[in-house]
Write a protein that binds this DNA or RNA. Structure first.
Lengths: 133, 133
DNA sequence: CCGTATCCTCATCGATACTG
DNA sequence: CAGTATCGATGAGGATACGG
């Protein structure tokens, strides 16, 4: 839909088409969402473990981000109340893994872009050729 | 690389793998980058035209964002000095269009996510089935 | 027309101290 | 251990006025 389709798309139509993109961007945006998701790819972790995994994050930020990720269904929060002190375990939900292709697309472009910044013409040609092949 | 590969990936390796993702995310992030890129998909536009296309943006923001996009090679700036007053035309570079697959990936996930938010189980099952098919 | 300069507001994030 | 409360710094972004 983004590349020129046969139907003439007005600015209004384009904005509508871009809304889901903004959604995804906002969900992955910010400083910590991605590191947290990555940190949980290796398996479930407790709060403190996860904080160690995501280097530099404060408890406040981790708590806040985890809440948002849970609301969006990307992760699961499990409270083991019988233990003392309480243990809380966070798991990357199956739904969270549906983000992998998106992250991979971003990673591929980002990798290519680093090359492009150093060797603009060469990298651009390589990229364009790969796309047409 | 993101899904579990055969080689055990340490947090350090994961962070390294995520750096290009952060690059791409930062480039597309912010309030205006996307609308500007979309605004230029229809063809070259002059500054004022583009400002009208990107509803709500101020001249300051448009100028700043265009500078960043040009530095990254996504758009091209052409100054027609002989005209009075000067005419400046911005064009989405071929390289800028290499972002289309990335944007499309974001759009697909975002669209699916909107459905997921309303009908969690149904949408999740549908998505997972589609992935395995 | 194409911007820049200046001032301002507000959300984000960090540091620290504290609670169940 | 798993958070919350509070304060403060920083930076993105907006409003307005002005310059080339």
């Amino acid at each position: 839909m983004l590349p020129n389709s046969s139907t003439p798309h007005t600015p209004q139509e384009c904005n509508a088409a871009m809304r889901p993109v903004r959604d995804a961007l906002d969900l992955l945006g910010g400083k910590w969402k991605l590191p947290i998701i990555v940190g949980l790819t290796g398996g479930p972790l407790r709060f403190k473990q996860l904080q160690r995994e995501v280097a530099g994050i404060t408890a406040k930020m981790l708590s806040k981000e985890l809440k948002e990720l849970e609301i969006n269904g990307l992760i699961t929060r499990y409270v083991q109340a019988d233990a003392a002190p309480v243990a809380v375990t966070y798991t990357l939900a199956d739904y969270g893994r549906t983000l992998y292709p998106v992250i991979e697309a971003l990673r591929l472009w980002g990798q290519q872009h680093r090359r492009h910044i150093m060797h603009p013409e060469a990298a651009a040609a390589e990229w364009l050729n790969a796309a047409s092949a």
